[in-house]
């Protein structure tokens, strides 16, 4: 007997605040999950008409295509500074920057740290997949020791390239941020936890609390040379050992 979905309750669908544009990400890439979580958060908070997204440089350079809200494309690493200017000009708007590990934790180090240190009332989504996806799989500041990338062909050697930077821990040292957390997406429980964290980070801004950072451990199956399933397992077993999950700062409610 054919199923009549018209008589059923829709329990999961595309968030209203996302456009119909198809994602440009590779199969199994977590960027798409994060996009959906942000869209769902914007829906739940009812803020689409006053939200401005700031897209970085990297695989998520097209982020402005996915959201049904105003958006800016920022120079590589500068999204937190751009968010600062925009939010100070229009404090009534909800401003989020979406930044990868190269953008946020390498080329944008100064802008990232100082926006956090000023306690800008913005929401930063920091996607840490330990690699430079768009340029072809080069080393990121967060690349694990021993990890093979296009620019560490023999594996990352701390003697010449240092260690993976725990950037959220650096930010957590500052007095101003109200919420700094590290989340993952390797199973449904983590996805639900991450969804709560993203919502909290936006809620903080809406309530005028100040700077919130959600670091999300994501996969890059293409450049990790793993299947999407293997990639999830790798995050669960290995990446979380270097980048432990959980809240680093949670001030106030």
């Amino acid at each position: 007997m054919p199923v009549d979905i018209a008589r059923m309750t829709k329990v999961f669908g595309r968030p209203e605040s996302l456009t119909q544009a198809r994602s440009t990400y590779c199969p199994g890439c977590h960027h798409g999950i994060i996009t959906r979580i942000i869209g769902q958060t914007i829906d739940e908070l009812g803020i689409a008409e006053r939200t401005i997204g700031i897209a970085p440089v990297g695989c998520s350079v097209f982020a402005y295509l996915w959201y049904r809200c105003d958006a800016l494309q920022a120079a590589h690493g500068r999204a937190s500074a751009v968010a600062t200017g925009l939010k100070r000009a229009r404090p009534d708007l909800v401003v989020f920057s979406y930044q990868g590990d190269g953008d946020f934790a390498s080329i944008g180090t100064a802008e990232s740290i100082h926006a956090a240190n000023r306690g800008e009332n913005i929401t930063v989504i920091f996607v840490n997949n330990q690699i430079y996806g768009m340029t072809g799989g080069e080393m990121a500041p967060t690349t694990l020791v021993g990890q093979h990338t296009a620019t560490t062909p023999d594996g990352r050697d701390p003697a010449t390239t240092g260690y993976p930077i725990r950037f959220s821990e650096l930010i957590a040292q500052l007095d101003a941020p109200v919420y700094v957390t590290r989340q993952a997406l390797y199973d449904t429980r983590r996805i639900m936890d991450c969804t709560k964290a993203v919502k909290k980070a936006f809620q903080n801004q809406v309530e005028g609390r100040g700077y919130s950072l959600v670091e999300i451990l994501a996969t890059c199956p293409t450049n990790w040379h793993m299947s999407p399933i293997q990639s999830n397992q790798h995050v669960a077993d290995t990446v979380t050992k270097v980048f432990p999950l959980g809240d680093l700062v949670n001030r106030g409610a």
Partner: peptide, 26 residues
């Protein structure tokens, strides 16, 4: 109005980019 002593000239011009995008004189 807004005055920020930025962390660098790079940051300052990008703050200008954000404020200009919001439509204010900057």
């Amino acid at each position: 109005r807004t005055f920020i002593q930025a962390e660098s000239e790079v940051a300052a011009i990008n703050m200008v980019y954000g404020a200009a995008a919001a439509g204010v004189r900057t």
